[in-house]
Each structure stands twice: as C-alpha cells, then as structure tokens.
Design a protein around this nucleic acid. Structure first.
Lengths: 137, 137
DNA sequence: TTTAGTGTACTAGTTCAATAGTACAATATG
DNA sequence: CATATTGTACTATTGAACTAGTACACTAAA
C-alpha cells in the first residue's frame, strides 16, 4: 500500500494485435479488476516506451485513444491519469455504444448457429469470470 | 415459390467493409433468416462478379472463406452450394468458438462499465430483432 | 470429343494501418 | 528564468490487406 508498483505491461509481438491496442487492453483490464483506480497515474509515454522497447508515439497513440474514449485524461508536462469517472456518458450514448458493441457480435454468433440461450450463458460465464477478480480486493 | 430468385447482393463501397466480407455477411444473414437453405446454389463466381462489377477473384475469395468455415461447399465445374449442415462441429469446437467470440466482446463491455444485466438485455434484444425476420417466412 | 460453363492460380498494383525517427511544445519545479 | 519532464506533431517506412487482370484447370453436357 505504501507504493503503487503500477501494473506490469508486456507486449506480445507474435499475437498479431497491434502494440497500441495491447496497451489499451491491459489498461482496460487493470481498471476492470481494480489494479488501476481513479486518479492513478499511468507510466509516462517515454518510460513505458523505453520499458517496452517501442517508440514513444506508439504509447502516445494508445493513450490518445483512451483519452478519446474517456478512459484517461492527459496533461502535458504532468502525465496521464485514469479519469475521475471512467466513463461519463448520457444514457442515450451508453445505449448506442452498447448496441454498436452487441450488433456485430450477435450477427456472427447467429451465422454460426448459436442460440440465444447458448450466447446468454457464455456471456454470463465470461462476466462472472471477470467479476471474481474484483471480489478479492 | 416457383423459382428461387436467389438473394439480391449489393455492395457498399463507402462502408469500409471489404467486398468479400460484405458478400460473406449477406450469405450468412440469408442463411440465418431462411432465404438460403441447405443445398441452394449460390450465384456463380462470374455472374456475381459481373453483377457487382467486381473481379471474380473477390467473389471467389468470399466463397473460399465460407468453404473453410464450412458454410458452403464448392465443386469445380458445377458451382457453389450451401452446405448440407451449415456447421458441423463437435461440442468442444462449438464451445471454443463461442468463447472466442464472447471474450473480446465482454472485455470491451466491461471496460466501458456495462453491467451484466445491461449486456444480457442488449444481447436478447439483438437476437429477437433477428429472429423476427424468420417468423415472417 | 467439343464446348461452355464452373472454380482456381498467379501476379501486380493500390491503399492503409502500424510503427519508428526525430524534432517540437507545454508544463512543473527549482 | 532555467531545465528537466511531460505529451505532441510531422514525416517516412514497412508490411499486410484488398482488389484486379489474366490465364489456367476442372467438369458437365451436347
């Protein structure tokens, strides 16, 4: 509790997932399971770039996308921080975003012949798998 | 009922979705809502290419991907047909595929702060939106 | 066997996403 | 102000995805 070690970022070059997306995912997961909380500072663009042996711009791109999504806020000269409220959207925006998220997912599930029950169960399982981690905090 | 007019393919060049994927999606949806059934013949590579004013190889690529996925079977000299069983997977394969489909979806939903209830409801809505079309047949 | 139909193979061109290199701008802090 | 630390802008390169052009190979049917 004395120091926040931050989270351990790592990249898998062979995964086919772009570096900047890997960074975003790791931050998102860290927020989801409590390793990052409101106000926490992310590693600086440069330090993370050195750490991961990639270009600062690649880190910056990840941070920028997250800022656009409202996940973090950046202040030049100071650093990048987890947003006060991870997401502050109107109800309409939330619904629109959720629908945009769900639609392609469902269309694929449908074309593969999965039933509503199967999908619902899989969704619940996946959710509970994630929530379990939070309970430990 | 006398003739099968087939489905009306169309492409949107501005959508950003590759042509071959648009074709796949249209076939998948046509299967999902009953406009295509087992054994039906797809338009030939050439005729669809002429129809959509694209290269035969682009159509062929769509058909190939669908064959790999088991959605259609092709026979040179004859044509391309909807598979006997749209998908014939073992239970293990089905579960693996579903999980692979669900996981990234859920991780995004989580990072945006959506609850299980919200997601479940959205999934059900999306599903019913698709099923409704079937009831008309 | 011929012929018209089917899918396929190979090559090339274009576009765009992803990343890096490098220099710049803003801010905190002494 | 000075200077170290923060994020940012601009450009270039690389590699992969996508599509097209064209020629080929297989099959059904006359």
């Amino acid at each position: 509790m004395a120091d926040k070690p931050g989270i351990a970022f790592s990249l898998d070059p062979k995964s086919g997932v772009p570096y900047y997306k890997q960074i975003i995912l790791q931050v998102e997961f860290a927020i989801a399971d409590g390793r990052f909380a409101t106000g926490d500072q992310l590693p600086t663009v440069r330090s993370l770039a050195v750490d991961l042996k990639i270009n600062p711009n690649t880190v910056a791109r990840a941070y920028n996308e997250m800022e656009i999504r409202g996940i973090v806020t950046t202040q030049q000269g100071s650093g990048t921080y987890i947003s006060d409220k991870p997401l502050r959207l109107t109800e309409v925006e939330r619904e629109g975003m959720l629908e945009a998220l769900v639609r392609p997912f469902i269309s694929r599930a449908l074309s593969y012949g999965f039933s509503l029950d199967e999908v619902t169960k899989a969704v619940r399982d996946a959710f509970e798998g994630s929530e379990r981690k939070e309970e430990e905090t």
